[in-house]
C-alpha cells in the first residue's frame, strides 16, 4: 500500500514540468487527477466544439471511477485545498465572513 511511485512529466523540449513522488494507490490517483486537469484545460482551450461539449460527460466518468470528491481534487490538480479546507471546515461560521469578503 505504501509503494513509492516517482513520476516526472516533461514538456516537448524535455524540460521538467512536474515531479511527483508519492506512495501507494492514493498517490497515483493524485497524479492522474493532475493529468486530467491539464487534459481538460487543453481540451477547453484548443479542442473542437463537439469535443468541448463532451467535457461534462468525461468529468462524469472520472466521478464514476472515483467519486464526487475527486472532482474537487481535480480542480486543485489532485490536491486537497488545505488553506480553505482548514478555514472553512473548522470554522463554519467564517463561511459568512468569507462570503462577504469574497462575494460582492
Amino acid at each position: 500500500m505504501n509503494m513509492p511511485v516517482n513520476v516526472t512529466i516533461k514538456n516537448k523540449g524535455g524540460r521538467i514540468v512536474k515531479d511527483f513522488s508519492v506512495s501507494g494507490p492514493h498517490g497515483v490517483e493524485r497524479i492522474l487527477l493532475w493529468i486530467w486537469r491539464d487534459l481538460f484545460l487543453s481540451l477547453l482551450a484548443r479542442g473542437l466544439s463537439s469535443d468541448k461539449k463532451k467535457t461534462a460527460e468525461m468529468l462524469e466518468s472520472v466521478e464514476f471511477m472515483l467519486d464526487w470528491t475527486a472532482l474537487e481534487r481535480l480542480l486543485y490538480g489532485g490536491k486537497q485545498c488545505e488553506l480553505f479546507d482548514m478555514i472553512l471546515c473548522q470554522q463554519p461560521d467564517l463561511l459568512y465572513l468569507y462570503s462577504i469578503v469574497w462575494g460582492q
Partner: peptide, 9 residues
C-alpha cells in the same frame, strides 16, 4: 472547468 465541475456537483 470550475464552472463545469460546479454545475456537475
Amino acid at each position: 472547468l470550475r464552472q463545469i465541475v460546479e454545475a456537475r456537483l
